[in-house]
């Protein structure tokens, strides 16, 4: 059984809302990534989304784009990222790791080779931002190898397509809470609630909500109806400029702990 599926089964069994932090691999400092992943788990992360930096991140806002640029300037690539996941796995066999990024690095690396190396390192899933269900075939190799391909749904996703996405969803379905780029501030919990209810009516796959979740209050509001919340830009922003690994880990804990507490306070 895939670690993502196991984790969501546990969350459902215990009535907790999942907490999914996103960090860009190699940011704020390449040497901090593995410790940072452990710190996120210690502060209550249920799953880690690790961003694979890309030179042309069309769907991301300035915060994550700049994190990508910083990581690329330090030479971060797939080889290091797989190495970091392997190091993380050495002392954490349970927390699922999803690589989030764009198609070109996967294509150029070779999808076969990418799948093999990712699984070997202990990666559990991929979220390819520019691979909608129309281009699903491009990532078949990854799914066949055992990686969960996390699909997205958006407020603009029309009914028929939403049905197809719900049917094809695996791991968890990532609901983009508003039309826009990562890190923008537009979240309206009520409209998201309605939409998530519709989605949950047509799939058994757990639904995580991201884009615009930024603090304990917004996380708790979304956590009231979503299976998990994803927090990216605000965390990446908080980590930027860390003085070193210890500082980055402290910042991560200080940021994530109150959000974990708010999510748990709601659950009985």
């Amino acid at each position: 059984m895939n670690r993502i599926d196991e984790r969501f089964a546990e969350l459902a069994a215990t009535g907790r809302t999942g907490l999914i932090p996103f960090v860009t691999a190699g940011d704020p400092l390449p040497e901090a990534t593995v410790d940072l992943m452990h710190a996120l788990v210690a502060a209550g992360a249920d799953l880690i989304e690790l961003g694979v930096p890309f030179s042309d991140p069309m769907a991301d806002g300035p915060v994550i784009q700049h994190a990508s640029e910083r990581a690329l300037a330090r030479g971060v690539g797939l080889k290091q990222i797989f190495g970091w996941v392997r190091d993380f796995r050495a002392s954490d066999a349970n927390t699922p790791v999803v690589l989030m990024g764009y198609m070109n690095p996967v294509e150029i690396h070779g999808a076969d080779r990418f799948a093999r190396e990712a699984i070997d390192a202990g990666v559990d899933g991929v979220l390819l931002v520019d691979c909608p269900i129309e281009e699903f075939a491009s990532a078949a190799v990854l799914r066949d190898a055992g990686l969960r391909q996390i699909l997205l749904a958006a407020p603009t996703t029309a009914g028929v397509r939403l049905g197809r996405i719900c049917e094809a969803a695996q791991g968890f379905l990532y609901y983009v809470s508003f039309a826009g780029i990562t890190g923008a501030d537009r979240l309206s919990a009520d409209s998201v609630r309605e939409r998530v209810a519709t989605i949950k009516g047509s799939t058994k796959t757990p639904v995580a909500v991201g884009f615009g979740v930024r603090d304990a209050a917004s996380a708790a509001a979304i956590g009231a109806f979503a299976d998990a919340v994803v927090i990216g830009s605000t965390l990446v922003d908080r980590l930027a400029g860390s003085a070193g690994t210890a500082d980055a880990c402290t910042r991560a804990r200080d940021f994530l702990s109150p959000i974990r507490a708010a999510l748990d306070a709601r659950a009985r």
Partner: peptide
């Protein structure tokens, strides 16, 4: 599907598919 042989397509974020 917007394909010229192996090329083209719609490799975009979900939000842009409907527009």
């Amino acid at each position: 599907r917007g394909r010229f042989g192996d090329y083209g397509g719609s490799y975009v974020a979900e939000t842009l598919i409907e527009p």
